[in-house]
């Protein structure tokens, strides 16, 4: 099967981000999200850190994609999702979900919100891809990090990923997506 082209992936991703931001955060994006392709520089490993992008310690969530349940059981992934939410978004997120703003609440709750937002976006993306010829795609549970997720593997021979940039509550957030489909 021919790989999906950039336009298809971009449209699907942007739709997923908008739907999740609206449906899960219950806000609208400040401006239309954008997506651009970016090169992957290493052969099969990708160092994921928010410092280079946001100059601060962001909350990060990582989700893996698999072509089907068999590949999932064998941990043979075909894609990676990395969501970055800036620490500056924490007060808005905490307030939006009705939590008290305490130092203890911040990290744990915001990490959970980040993971669940990533889960929602990935879920919509996966569902939309199922209608584009990939009906058996599976996703992992979201993993939570702060600042850096370290080295993530991705399928060999992949040369690019997609950077989605969106804005909520006046702050940028980003989503990096690499899918070998």
């Amino acid at each position: 099967m021919a790989r999906l082209d950039f336009q298809v992936i971009a449209t699907t991703l942007l739709g997923a981000v908008n739907q999740a931001v609206n449906g899960f955060l219950h806000v609208h994006s400040d401006q239309e999200p954008t997506v651009v392709p970016r090169p992957l520089l290493a052969e099969d490993k990708w160092y994921v850190s928010s410092f280079g992008e946001f100059y601060d310690s962001s909350y990060i969530s990582v989700i893996y994609f698999y072509r089907n349940s068999k590949d999932r059981e064998a941990n043979r992934f075909c894609g990676v999702f990395v969501l970055y939410l800036k620490e500056a978004l924490a007060p808005n997120l905490i307030k939006a979900f009705g939590y008290k703003d305490t130092a203890e609440t911040n990290n744990e709750v915001v990490a959970d919100i980040t993971a669940e937002l990533a889960n929602n976006i990935a879920g919509v993306f996966k569902k939309d891809l199922s209608g584009l010829g990939y009906p058996e795609l599976e996703i992992s549970a979201p993993m939570k990090f702060k600042g850096s997720a370290g080295w993530l593997s991705y399928p060999k021979n992949e040369k690019q990923y997609y950077r989605v940039t969106a804005f909520v509550w006046g702050q940028k957030f980003a989503l990096d997506v690499m899918v070998a489909i």
Binding site: F97, G98, V109
Partner: peptide
Amino acid sequence: DDSSVQRKMIIQ
């Protein structure tokens, strides 16, 4: 739900 945030949202 394994997400405490999601459980809280549903309960709200």
